[in-house]
Nucleic acid binder design. Structure first.
Length: 761
DNA sequence: GTATTATCTAAGTCT
DNA sequence: TAGATAATAC
């Protein structure tokens, strides 16, 4: 009967090793998730209580997948009781229970990155510090690094080295800002992402009884993607496992791509020191990819100095060679990729969902998106502007946040005058000053405003009305279900009405629909079964807010089933696999990123990222780069990535011919749309001609000479507006402007440099 | 206090 | 380019 029969020898040994510390070094595609889920299932089958098992992941998606797999393996509902979740969500859960000990109340808000930025901005303004010198992201990075390494604001300010470094970099007041930042968070009853880990550590450090409680509960500790843990996470895990030492960690140093966020590969080495009898298992057989992909990925990762010895191999078929392509522009890269995808779907009869396009930065998605849309290939972009980052959604959520935690300052600032209720900056500034003086939250000042300051009667009344509304929506939070509560707030705040009235253009309609979608989502949430024992316990708004506070872009993946091509960053693709993978934008300064050229360590992380990208592919991988690319509105000439030179050419398709091909310009692509797709040139390889291509700069199809051809009466083509006729021109060279009449949209005033017009012939 | 317009500035990966 | 902010008029 044994489920263990589905495992190979090493996997099985790792699963069966249940008492004592172990580390599983798992190469890409070697069945890492399989081992960890089988181990949980195995423990439960052996009679261990699911309540005594904790499994930590980095993404909700990984957690959900793991839970599903365990449930399938053991059947029944027992798996529900395993503490299985992300570091952040599990410890947020624990912190809510123990909040009082740390001086928070259990309804604390979790600030996201935007909240943190906005708070820091307010602090800089208060302190009258120049936000050019004190760049918000730099200051917050500093604070985040400190928290990750468990350095409190007090310790920070007493640390000579840190203070010195801050003076040297021209930001001597960073430590002070850290202190203010923490004070403001506390006043708002809020924690940021790093606090969830930092405060858990404080909790375990200062309250041995609490630590003991959780040590006793968690007899078995399992950690996924261990190479991505930072010091704070390492220490939490170490403390939890200290009593029983039944700890299992799974990781792959070659896939460590979060060092920028404090992840430390050293944690793997530390493990050997902490547990001298640590048992190591190495999973080296890849079940995912073809030999060509595995081989080329190995050839890349071997260029890194910092790595543990391991040899990934596969018994899979040799497969197709990788294809490498270059195009003249980023838009053409998009067109080429779209064409190749079209080909795969039609010739190979593959589903769009078997294909992924991976890129280094979110900004690259645009050209790809346009190309796919043009030839009607269904796609979905992950990351970037996610649903929960939209303004209208954040606005409504801010009201919910206020209802749950009225001290939440970022939420209050966001909506106190939205919809407009005549409470402007002047009034708010006065309130802020008093709040600072009295060290109270804005809401607390507003509720008894007449105690502190005399304002015009009308203003005072507006403030009190606002406070009453918030108060009213907080009263029934625990007795009403999430949907009823959300609906009530959406109405009483006036947001629903306002968005309803603003549906006078496409964007307005979209905004209203988004809010409807949110409310529908909350309805589903309210009606869904509670996790615990299938009871129909009331599901409340605070519970919903807890759910989405740690919700990320990557999590949208499983929500939306469907058949589409996936577009995402390589970071977001970690842990996923696709039969066909396109890796685009292989250019110096883009991949590797321009920010990562300073040190060997940074470059090696980029190389690991490339390794992760390559190993997502099951059947075939396509690589490409463009010779020119629009960056912040300017056309820049680019160079092929150094990683291309590092590829072992034995595994790359060596057809050439790109240079004999006519360089298609955008207008040609437009014409191609109506052409039969089967006649299109096959994807070709240019690896032999890299140098030649690099030096060929006349590829650029947008240059000054082109502008001169734009004259009155000339017919042009615009990407968005379509065909048009030039009515008037003004200026010279790159600054030239033209008024163009388009059939669809009428006259448009265009700056040629940006409009990227093509001539019609 | 609000709406509109002009100007500036940033541009990386994310729990 | 686009989003945020400052300046301006109402």
């Amino acid at each position: 009967m044994g489920i263990l029969d589905n495992l190979n020898d090493v996997q099985r040994a790792a699963v069966e090793y249940i008492s004592g510390p172990s580390i599983i070094i798992a190469g890409a595609g070697s069945g890492k998730t399989r081992v960890i889920t089988y181990k949980i299932a195995h423990l439960i089958n052996l009679g261990e209580n699911p309540f005594n098992i904790i499994a930590l992941t980095f993404t909700n998606k990984a957690a959900r997948e793991m839970r599903n797999r365990v449930e399938t393996l053991i059947g029944g509902t027992e798996a529900r009781n395993v503490w299985l979740g992300t570091f952040h969500s599990i410890f947020a859960r624990i912190l809510r229970v123990e909040a009082e000990r740390l001086g928070f109340s259990s309804n604390f808000t979790i600030y996201d990155t935007d909240d943190s930025k906005s708070l820091m901005k307010a602090i800089l303004k208060d302190q009258q510090l120049d936000d050019k010198k004190y760049k918000i992201s730099t200051v917050l990075n500093r604070i985040s690094t400190a928290k990750t390494n468990l350095i409190s604001h007090v310790e920070y300010n007493n640390n000579q080295e840190l203070m010195h470094a801050d003076s040297e970099s021209g930001r001597p007041k960073t430590g002070m800002l850290y202190t203010f930042y923490q004070e403001r968070l506390r006043k708002a009853n809020a924690m940021d992402f790093d606090d969830l880990l930092f405060n858990t550590n404080i909790l375990f450090r200062d309250f041995p009884d609490i630590l003991y409680k959780y040590q006793k509960r968690f007899q078995y500790v399992l950690v996924d993607e261990y190479q991505d843990t930072n010091f704070a996470q390492y220490l939490i895990v170490k403390k939890l496992a200290a009593a029983n030492e039944n700890i299992t960690v799974v990781g792959d140093d070659a896939q460590s791509i979060y060092a920028f966020r404090g992840a430390n590969i050293q944690n793997i080495l530390n493990l050997e020191k902490d547990y001298p009898d640590l048992k190591t298992f190495k999973l080296e057989q890849n079940y995912r990819s073809t030999q060509n992909i595995v081989n080329i990925a190995n050839s890349i990762i071997n260029k890194n100095k910092a790595q543990f010895k391991k040899t990934i191999w596969t018994q899979n078929e040799e497969g197709d060679k990788l294809k490498l392509n270059a195009t003249a522009t980023d838009n053409e890269e998009g067109n080429l990729v779209a064409r190749q995808i079209f080909d795969i779907i039609n010739r190979e009869k593959s589903k769009p969902s078997s294909i992924a396009i991976l890129y280094r930065t979110n900004a690259q998605s645009r050209a790809l998106e346009e190309a796919l849309r043009r030839i009607n290939i269904p796609y979905k972009i992950f990351g970037g502007m996610s649903f929960y980052k939209r303004k209208e959604i954040k606005d409504l959520l801010a009201y919910f946040r206020l209802a749950v935690n009225s001290k939440d300052e970022e939420a209050l600032k966001r909506v106190i005058n939205y919809p407009k209720r005549g409470i402007g900056d002047t009034t708010l500034d006065k309130i802020k000053i008093i709040a600072n003086e009295k060290s109270l939250s804005l809401y607390e000042i507003i509720t008894s405003i007449n105690q502190y300051i005399s304002l015009p009667q009308a203003t005072e009344q507006k403030l009190l009305n606002f406070a009453v509304m918030i108060k009213a929506s907080s009263i029934e939070l625990k007795t009403k279900n999430a949907y009823d509560m959300a609906m009530q707030i959406a109405k009483s705040s006036g947001i629903l009405q306002l968005l309803y009235e603003e549906r006078n253009d496409d964007e307005g309609i979209m905004r209203f629909e988004n809010v409807e979608e949110l409310l529908n989502g909350i309805k589903d949430f309210s009606e869904s079964q509670n996790d615990e024992e299938g009871s129909t316990e009331l599901r409340t708004l605070p519970q919903f807010m807890e759910d989405i506070a740690l919700y990320t872009d990557a999590d949208e993946k499983d929500k939306q089933e469907g058949d589409f091509v996936s577009l995402m960053t390589i970071h977001a693709a970690k842990g996923l696999e696709f039969p066909y993978v396109f890796i685009v934008g292989l250019e110096e300064n883009l991949f590797p990123s321009i920010m990562a050229l300073n040190s060997r360590e940074d470059i090696e992380e980029e190389r690991r990222l490339f390794y992760v990208a390559l190993t997502r592919g099951e059947k075939q991988v396509f690589l490409s780069y463009a010779n020119t690319r629009y960056k912040w509105g300017n056309l820049t000439v680019t160079e092929p990535s150094r990683f291309i030179q590092e590829l072992d050419t034995n595994f790359i398709d060596d057809e050439t011919g790109l240079f004999e091909m006519e360089k298609p310009s955008e207008k040609n692509d437009f014409a191609l749309e109506r052409q039969s797709w089967s006649n299109l040139p096959k994807a070709v390889d240019i690896s032999k001609n890299l140098k030649k291509l690099t030096k060929t700069s006349e590829n650029k199809n947008t240059n000054i000479d082109e502008y001169e051809k734009i004259q009155v009466g000339v017919e042009v083509y615009h990407q968005r507006f379509g065909k048009g006729k030039v009515q008037q021109v003004d200026g010279i060279g790159a600054d030239k402007k033209a008024i163009v009449f388009f059939a669809n949209v009428g006259n448009k005033n265009l700056i040629l440099r940006y409009a990227k017009l093509d001539l019609m012939e």
